[in-house]
Design a protein around this nucleic acid. Structure first.
Lengths: 211, 211
DNA sequence: CCCAGCAATCTATCGCTGATAACTTATCAC
DNA sequence: GTGATAAGTTATCAGCGATAGATTGCTGGG
């Protein structure tokens, strides 16, 4: 008989990948609640129903868990941007829709967004090294998809500038600013969010596309 | 009876406020080298030439040191924006110059910028609470100066939109995106920095001002 | 059936962190 | 001198991420 109140009921063999998913589920929930930094490996272990060192059988470091979640999240961003792209000719409306996909992703998946673009190397020793730069690479894939979209509009003669890389980096920075501030400073006296996002995207579009 | 006479400062090696400045100097140097998170209170103490607990006679927490440095840095930002403002009529060139002041500040004082806008509440427990939101308030002062500038251009009929707050928040987000990415992702394959900054500012200007 | 082997999980612990408590010393007022 | 007080110290705390080594439970060969 296994009483749930017993302190150390050894958890059964975790069937490999399933146990790993359980840990990721727990980590995702906690990270989303409190942010990566505020969550300890002991908390993740407790919610996963295993001991804290057992985590290290599945992940080399705590950052690795965040990195894994981040990579997965970015896969969905690329997916969404790709979907938004195929079903639209290069028009102003579709351009803004593409930018909107990016903003929505960041607002909906703040912790994935944080790990990929807002966490700094210097902040925890060597995050980029520890995770092999995998979140960054996943983020770059999204960036390249973004650039491909920009190339379409530039080829159609709709852009103010000619260098697609310059346009893409500038637009990306513009979008990132809004997303990261909304994530990092939710308590700031923002005007109504929907209006702000719409106005921001419209401003970027006016700055990037002709008339 | 308690005499409210001013007490002469009984100072030892570190003459009161001087000691405090020594600590801030050490902290600033270390923070700039490695980033706030990567510096421990023991390192700061060692460079200050005192024991680690002695720091807590001058600062309630480590975050307090960062906050103090941040507030000072922002005072210089407001100063610079103010200076750039008084000597310019509302023209396109002067508008871009104002935006440029902000970007230059962020690039030159990355650690102050980080503490004010890139560090999150969730990242270290309760940074905002612990520091009484002082860095945030200092940042808001800069924001308000920025809004005042925007109001000038709006009053001169140069802006595309009418709501100064909306314009300011949008422009600010656009600028923040570039600054924070340059700070957080220096290893990203950016195009040449000067060209990027100029193009970014020009894009924001096109999006915000009429023709 | 039993038991060796092995992988998964445990308890215990390391060195580090930020922060606090309690003791000591230097400098002042009287 | 003699307390009082400010400023430093040493010793210590709880919590962190991560590691070492003992221990449990499953599994395949006899």
């Amino acid at each position: 008989m296994k009483s749930p109140t017993l302190r150390s009921p050894r958890k059964q063999k975790g069937h490999g990948a399933e146990r790993r998913e359980e840990i990721l589920d727990a980590a995702l929930a906690l990270f989303s609640e409190k942010g990566v930094h505020a969550v300890s490996t002991r908390q993740i272990a407790e919610r996963s129903g295993i001991s804290q060192p057992a985590l290290y059988a599945y992940f080399a470091t705590k950052d690795d868990m965040a990195a894994e979640l981040c990579v997965r999240a970015f896969a969905t961003l690329v997916e969404r941007m790709c979907a938004a792209r195929v079903r639209g000719a290069p028009t102003i409306e579709n351009f803004e829709r593409s930018l909107r996909v990016y903003v929505d992703f960041g607002v909906e998946r703040p912790n994935a967004y944080r790990v990929a673009f807002m966490i700094e190397k210097s902040e925890h020793g060597a995050f980029l090294e520890k995770t092999g730069g995998r979140p960054m690479i996943a983020g770059l894939e999204a960036f390249e998809m973004f650039r491909d979209i920009v190339v379409e509009y530039q080829a159609a003669g709709l852009t103010v500038l000619d260098d697609p890389l310059l346009i893409t980096q500038t637009l990306w920075a513009g979008l990132h600013g809004l997303v990261s501030l909304l994530i990092a400073r939710p308590e700031f006296p923002w005007i109504e969010r929907e209006a702000l996002i719409a106005a921001h995207i419209a401003m970027l579009r006016r700055g990037a596309l002709k008339a």
